[in-house]
């Protein structure tokens, strides 16, 4: 709890710097406006104007807060202007992709741990693929699937699944391999079958690793869904809000979408962390 005060201090500093930057960056436009209307610019008026522009270069924090409030509480949640609705579109793709990706990752990891052929064939490529900027192919996946007649939630989910897959695979393989020779020998001396070794020794000892990768993966899955909404004229979702905001210069809209995405990411990571704590405690693994 001794971290609360320093964190608040740093946050306060960020808000102050933000206001300062907003005044500085929005000043030229404000000065131009004053000159055009023939009003002699005075500093308080100028600063007041930088705080309340329609399309500021950098919206002040309270403008973003107002944009967020309008988007979340000011609209019906079924409305196309509601951030809740857009967040739900993105969230559903994220969760679908996360479920597909982590399931495939875990299944493949089980295969890799039990088959040496699979281990030596797949593992090097799985590790090497981590260095490839997979997100860059996101627009292609969307367009290709659209030309094959698949639109809507599934293409975005495919990208999220792809991003979820590798961290989960690598983490689970590492986790399933943590039981040392002594523990495996003990299981063997009890005449345990391969299935019993898996369910009672390997899987429980893999859980901490699995949850660590799930936390990384769900953040990546959200990024995947957002980037998946960027190309090809998507009209719904946080990514689409970012794109349309950047086309029409609606900076407040961009920042509001950005903060919604950040809150969503934080909430998802927190939820996975909570499931992790509950599961580990019930299995007696909590440290």
């Amino acid at each position: 709890m001794d971290a609360v005060l320093p964190v608040l201090a740093v946050l306060l500093a960020i808000v102050i710097v933000w206001y300062g930057a907003a005044i500085r960056l929005n000043m030229p436009w404000a000065e131009e406006q004053m000159a055009r209307e023939g009003i002699a610019p005075t500093l308080p008026v100028l600063i007041g104007d930088t705080m309340a522009q329609e399309r500021p270069v950098l919206p002040a924090p309270h403008q973003v807060a107002k944009g967020l409030w309008d988007g979340i509480a000011g609209q019906k949640i079924t409305s196309k202007r509601s951030l809740v609705w857009h967040a739900w579109v993105t969230l559903s793709a994220t969760l679908a992709g996360f479920a597909i990706g982590s399931l495939t990752g875990i299944l493949l990891a089980v295969g890799i741990v039990h088959s040496r052929t699979m281990d030596q064939s797949v593992m090097p490529w799985a590790v090497a693929s981590q260095t490839v900027p997979i997100l860059a192919i996101a627009p292609m996946v969307i367009v290709v699937l659209a030309s094959a007649g698949v639109t809507g939630l599934l293409p975005k989910a495919v990208i999220s699944a792809w991003l979820t897959f590798f961290p989960v695979l690598v983490g689970t393989v590492k986790g399933l391999r943590t039981p040392d020779a002594m523990q495996l020998d003990l299981m063997r001396s009890w005449n345990a079958s391969a299935a019993q070794v898996f369910w009672r020794l390997r899987l429980p000892s893999a859980l901490p690793y699995l949850f660590a990768s799930l936390k990384v993966a769900i953040a990546a899955a959200l990024v995947g869904a957002i980037v998946g909404e960027l190309p090809a004229g998507a009209t719904a979702g946080l990514g689409a809000r970012l794109l349309s905001g950047s086309y029409y210069g609606q900076t407040v809209q961009i920042w509001a979408a950005l903060f919604t995405a950040a809150a969503l990411a934080a909430a998802l990571v927190l939820i996975v962390g909570w499931i992790e704590r509950v599961t580990l405690r019930r299995m007696g693994l909590a440290r």
């Binding site: 320093p6 740093v10 936390k215 990024v223 950040a262 934080a266």
Partner: peptide, 20 residues
């Protein structure tokens, strides 16, 4: 103060600031 914030920001979809 910065470590928790840094950890938090590292998990955020930072690509989103690209349009800005």
């Amino acid at each position: 103060g910065l470590l928790p914030i840094g950890n938090f920001v590292a998990a955020l979809p930072i690509v989103g600031i690209a349009p800005i």
